[in-house]
Design a protein around this nucleic acid. Sequence first.
DNA 1: CAGGATCCAAATAGATACTG
DNA 2: CAGTATCTATTTGGATCCTG
Lengths: 134, 134
Amino acid sequence: MVTQAQPLATKPLAKREPDPADHTTCAVMSDILNRIGDKWSVMIVGRLGHGTKRFSELKRAVEGISQRMLTLTLRNLERDGLVVRTVYPEIPPRVEYKLTPLGETLLEPINALWDWASVHGEDIARARERYDGP
Amino acid sequence: MVTQAQPLATKPLAKREPDPADHTTCAVMSDILNRIGDKWSVMIVGRLGHGTKRFSELKRAVEGISQRMLTLTLRNLERDGLVVRTVYPEIPPRVEYKLTPLGETLLEPINALWDWASVHGEDIARARERYDGP
DNA sequence: CAGGATCCAAATAGATACTG
DNA sequence: CAGTATCTATTTGGATCCTG
């Protein structure tokens, strides 16, 4: 309940190797992964990396997503401070979503992953074929 | 011992921006995220980044994981060619896990994420407090 | 248009108990 | 030690209907 105003900003835990034995960072990672690891968050963040989009644009852009999941995912991203939601009180209603500065910083590691996926995706596919049987 | 596969190098699909409209890479991403996005894979890969570990070592190192989930996750990582499993026919049995060359390449984007998490974890925590109510 | 509310199916995860 | 086999609880996602 205490809205503690600790000297915030970029005074993190210090850079460190990924170390699952480090329970603090480990917990944070679990948390992050729960967000970006879900089925849609990365797609949406990636799409918003191209600029502001409204709800229906996202729905069309992110192939296969249901209305419900788009709403839920956007709410979570908003809650985590990665996305801002702006409502224009018009008729018909218009709602726009864009990345926050924090959200934009996430774009970088996500791009790294995206690159990895595009480079090694076929390696994985081959590994699976090998594993699943000759 | 296990230097069987050369890192297959970089002959990818060409570098590209994250673009959820690109259905090919998009599908690959979904796939990758399904692997590294689950609750345990990243922890395990991170831990194996420090070197070969046996089953019980991993179980102790990755806090909170159940035997079942460790087995399942390791099998998936093995299937995807990210981890090699070596059984030593001794009594009592000994099984060791280590990253493949492909698995090691994954360490890099994972580290990027880990860094991001350690830097911005508190930002997210604060954003949530703000969102959830004062 | 941008959702909220429901209901239901499927995927995931945890807790045992048992085994070579 | 390193699993497998079950059974159950929780999470998640999709489909559908409704509204300002």
